[in-house]
């Protein structure tokens, strides 16, 4: 279970690792650790999935059309309300 890196040390680099910004050497250490340590492998996989799920499901939230209309009105932009939304 413990090679060069223990589970606690993995935690410190975890964010950088899942963001893909960790240096090659540390990356390789993490990969060799999770190959042997099932709990850490699960933590890495489910953490990636957690971030993915939040991003994916949030993308669906759009500003409701009536909220946009009131915003344009409040900003004195009524004459632009009809313009096609650019996303």
């Amino acid at each position: 279970m413990k090679k060069h890196l223990n589970c606690g040390a993995l935690l410190e680099s975890l964010s950088e690792y899942v963001d893909g910004v960790l240096g090659d050497a540390l990356c390789a250490e993490i990969e060799s650790h999770v190959a042997d340590c099932d709990d850490c492998r699960v933590v890495v996989d489910t953490l990636k999935k957690t971030i993915y799920l939040y991003h994916e499901t949030s993308e669906k939230t759009e500003i409701p059309i009536d909220v946009r209309t009131r915003l344009f009105h409040r900003l004195n932009l009524d004459d632009f309300i009809q313009e096609k939304k650019q996303v």
Partner: peptide, 9 residues
Amino acid sequence: ARLVDVHST
């Protein structure tokens, strides 16, 4: 108006 539409969501 363009700025608002790009960033409001």
